[in-house]
Amino acid sequence: MTRSISVNGAAHPLPNDPRVSLLDFLRDGLRLTGTKKGCDHGQCGACTVIVNGIRINSCLTLAAMHEDDEVTTIEGLGTPDAPSPLQQAFLEHDGFQCGYCTPGQICSATALLDEIASNWPSDASGDLVGTLTLSDEEIRERMSGNLCRCGAYANIVAAIRDVAEQRT
């Protein structure tokens, strides 16, 4: 019986070697190279993908542990002809320079918007039980797992704020 994983809506057999990280499986196994390998230790966030609706570092998990899970990568969020609202906002706000961290930033921010909609607090939230207001400080704290060595942070925050405001 073949164990499988769903990536961007399509089922794929899982690799046989248990050492394969979800990140290496996506890039080398499926040739979905939008997801980037930065530090490979969960420090930079370039490998962020969404698994069962939750954002994680794909470098710090084994593909073998994701039988029947539903993975969404940057390729599953939008296309050049039909970008997702965040992909469009990153273009409009110039939310990148070299672009290497961008797929991770956008996957992370996509899940962030759902976390805000679920009223999940962050370390920047003054009140744990009230309704959240999405300040720039909140966005920055919630995006602290995604580094941008070009330093496009101001425009990344602007892009996320733009989409968050359109949603409310």
Binding site: G42, G45, S108, A111, L112, E115, P121, D123
Partner: peptide, 12 residues
Amino acid sequence: ILAGATQQLRNK
């Protein structure tokens, strides 16, 4: 908990 790690890590 919220003062530690990142959202991606806390999710796992």
